[in-house]
Write a protein that binds this DNA or RNA. Structure first.
Length: 359
DNA sequence: CAGTCGTGGCT
DNA sequence: TAGCCAAGACT
């Protein structure tokens, strides 16, 4: 069964960290939130901010947002003092908006503690938006703590190294145990980042580049011949398609925008009025006036696909629209719609509306 | 445990 | 193309 001639005899958990750290010293990705050459340790604020942004989000997507946030709010105290709407608008397009709400709550909690982040895993874990992963990551990367950092990259690398084929999420316990066995006492932060670099560039989900892997001699899954098979994951449920309507109500070059409730789908974000496709309604569907269809926006969310029918009401005067006064909103200049901070689904709808109202 | 919660890129 | 996937947290 040793089709590729890899020696399982070399399987040695103690050899993994040194080999990986050597590889990291030579191949670490240079990322904006990593310490600069000569810096002993990374700024906890920047580590925390990047880790929250990177939750379920790619490095490429995070880059511009990290630059924007650190430019607008260089310290956790600056962020704590920021206006909620400004922060939500700055987050627009990055997704999972509960992260932005928790980000502000966390910044304010830290500010209330004197502006200094807790330096222990337990202390960090108690902050809003920091779960098991993020608390461990910040503790290790920013504070040099020996913490076992397990994200999807680490799960994949460990599942392959140890040939753990118990399906996730049930297999997380075994993976975490194994991760603890290979996490070094020193340089735990570098080790965590090395595991994630390896997972992102070499030990990838689809077609792992095992020929380039510094741990190939230590990998049971490779020795068994099919590393891409791991980790095993439970099948996903099919996504339903939901229908909805959004309303573009414009007069004198301004469009009516609303603020969505503070929790739930797109919570806290600026938006177009809609008919309740996301379990809410703002009354716009009851407005009388001259409406015309403006095309359909298709947008995929995590657990459903949306077909959003855009409705346009451009030339009517506000006073002539029965029911409009029932909506709490703001008239936003259409020319500056990019600055409104709309989530992507509504940004798509706005682009379509602007194209439609011209043609 | 299982559902909720975005988005863009890759295969 | 359609599905899969990503530095998860929260309820």
């Amino acid at each position: 069964m040793q089709a590729r001639g890899q020696a399982t005899a070399k399987f040695d958990p103690q050899a993994i960290a040194p080999a990986l750290l050597d590889w990291y010293d030579a191949h670490a990705r240079k990322l904006p939130w990593r310490r600069l050459p000569g810096e002993a340790r990374q700024d906890p604020y920047r580590v925390w901010l990047s880790e929250v942004m990177l939750q379920q989000t790619t490095v490429a997507a995070v880059g511009p947002y990290f630059e924007k946030f650190t430019r607008l709010w260089p310290t956790v105290g600056d962020l704590a003092a920021a206006d909620d709407g400004d922060v939500m608008a700055a987050w627009a397009g990055l997704g999972y908006y509960a992260r932005a709400r928790n980000l502000l709550a966390c910044a304010r909690a830290v500010a209330a503690m004197g502006g200094t982040f807790p330096d222990s895993e337990d202390g960090l874990r108690a902050l809003p938006g920091l779960g098991e992963y993020t608390a461990a990551a910040v503790a290790a990367i920013a504070f040099g703590r020996r913490a076992v950092v397990v994200d999807a990259n680490v799960e994949r690398v460990i599942a392959r190294l140890f040939a753990i084929d118990e399906p996730l999420p049930a297999g997380k316990a075994a993976i975490r145990l194994a991760a603890g066995q290979v996490t070094p006492e020193e340089r735990a932060g570098d080790f965590a980042q090395a595991m994630m670099d390896l997972g992102a560039t070499v030990c990838t989900a689809r077609s792992p580049r095992c020929m380039l892997c510094p741990l190939r001699e230590h990998c049971r899954a490779l020795a068994e011949g099919a590393p891409e098979r791991l980790p095993v994951k439970a099948a996903r449920k099919a996504k339903p398609v939901r229908q909805g309507r959004a309303y573009w109500i414009e007069r004198e070059g301004r469009v009516l925008l609303v603020r969505r409730p503070g929790r739930g789908m797109l919570g806290g974000m600026r938006a177009l009025p809609d008919d309740g496709w996301s379990a809410r309604g703002d009354g716009a569907d009851a407005i009388g006036g001259e409406w015309r269809g403006g095309g359909v926006v298709r947008h995929g969310f995590t657990h459903f696909d949306l077909e959003l029918q855009l409705m346009l009401c451009v030339q009517a005067e506000a006073a002539s629209l029965p029911g409009l006064n029932d909506i709490e909103g703001e008239w936003w200049p259409v020319d500056e719609i990019e600055a409104a901070g709309l989530p992507t689904v509504f940004a798509k709808a706005a682009r379509l509306a602007i194209a439609e109202r011209i043609g």
